[in-house]
Design a binder for these strands. Structure first.
Lengths: 197, 197
DNA sequence: CATAATGTAGACAGATCTGTCTGAAGGAGT
DNA sequence: ACTCCTTCAGACAGATCTGTCTACATTATG
């Protein structure tokens, strides 16, 4: 087979996940049909149904992949900082760097959740991601000495979600700076510290 | 016609808009087909295409109706308060009252925007609504004496959007209180005033 | 009464989507 | 060489969706 590299040919599962990630994230879960995914992946339709069982399970696997990637990215960004306060801000800075990517299309879980019917696999995946995010903010808020860590954690999550929405829907390149400034103010108000930075 | 009240029969256009509002908002624009809308409205298919021209225009009219309703509601809530600071908080309180409605399903513009292809009528409608909201927050921030009214206005919009998302996706009845507390802190930080209340 | 406008009921075309199934090709291990 | 297993290519069924069109009923007005 002259056309096939000897070094690497990703499995059908990997190619399907990569294609699903590109198409579902770019255009939405409902807008993209199975046929476009398998064509983009270079995979037969039977392989999709053998591997995942159906579209809903493929969507779930796509969201799980996104979940893992985002957890990795944010965990790394947090690990680079020393104090809980800086670690909270690092989450917003990492998010802000995503806004500049040409393929940025907002939070995959919010987008998928807005389309999906409640109670399905999509909502499960969204719950898992949002729960992780919420716990991260709350833990850092506690480590930073906030009087009410649950309150500050929730406030920061509202800000995080709102920033993702604004970056997606508004024509405004200042979202990252605005959300970081707001986070700084909320942290200062909740911890009694100064808001400089 | 014994089955028809003599006093009132809404026009086909009004019934279509009411049905579209209920179904599109509850289940999403893409999930609801034309047939379900006309059945729910008790209207013939030809009337829909005569009146609106197609589904996209019906969606646009649905969003315009939502826009007008929300502008009315928030304008009234703002008018009941005296100071710019209390007027900003009134926006969040009015939003928080929506969260308790059994049919609450988040922001119609964010939901529709997450499904729609960019550049269409839906994005136009979303831009119009978000622009109005942003200008309201910015104007109130200026009247409250914020050092940077654009910054505070944008921060409050992030919070507003995030609160809507969290109320839709999380199982948490404290969203309204959390967003109001965060707004209080952001206003205080931006105006130099105390954050009590 | 006559006419024009509006709405109703529903068949129909054309496209698209999910999911199933068949038959053949290719690679790995024995 | 032979067999097993994955994969490919694509036809196919069944459902659903948008949009068009025809034929008929209703209502207001000249």
């Amino acid at each position: 087979m002259a056309s096939v590299r000897s070094t690497a040919k990703p499995s059908a599962r990997e190619r399907l996940l990569a294609a699903a990630n590109e198409l579902f994230y770019a255009e939405g879960v409902q807008c993209v049909g199975i046929d476009r995914v398998i064509e983009h992946a270079g995979v037969a339709k039977g392989s999709l149904y053998n591997t995942f069982g159906g579209k809903e399970q493929l969507v779930r696997a796509y969201l799980d992949t996104r979940h893992a990637g985002t957890v990795d990215r944010i965990t790394r960004a947090v690990a680079e900082r020393d104090t809980p306060r800086e670690q909270m801000l690092a989450v917003f800075e990492s998010q802000g760097r995503q806004f500049d990517r040409p393929d940025f299309r907002g939070c995959a879980f919010i987008r998928a959740g807005a389309e999906a019917s409640p109670g399905g696999l999509v909502q499960e995946a969204a719950d898992a991601f949002r729960g992780w995010m919420r716990e991260l903010f709350t833990r850092l808020a506690a480590e930073a000495g906030a009087a009410d860590p649950d309150a500050l954690g929730h406030q920061l999550q509202l800000l995080y979600d709102g920033a993702g929405i604004s970056a997606l829907m508004d024509h405004d390149s200042t979202v990252a700076a605005t959300s970081r400034a707001a986070a700084t103010a909320l942290i200062a108000a909740a911890t009694g510290a100064s808001a400089e930075a």
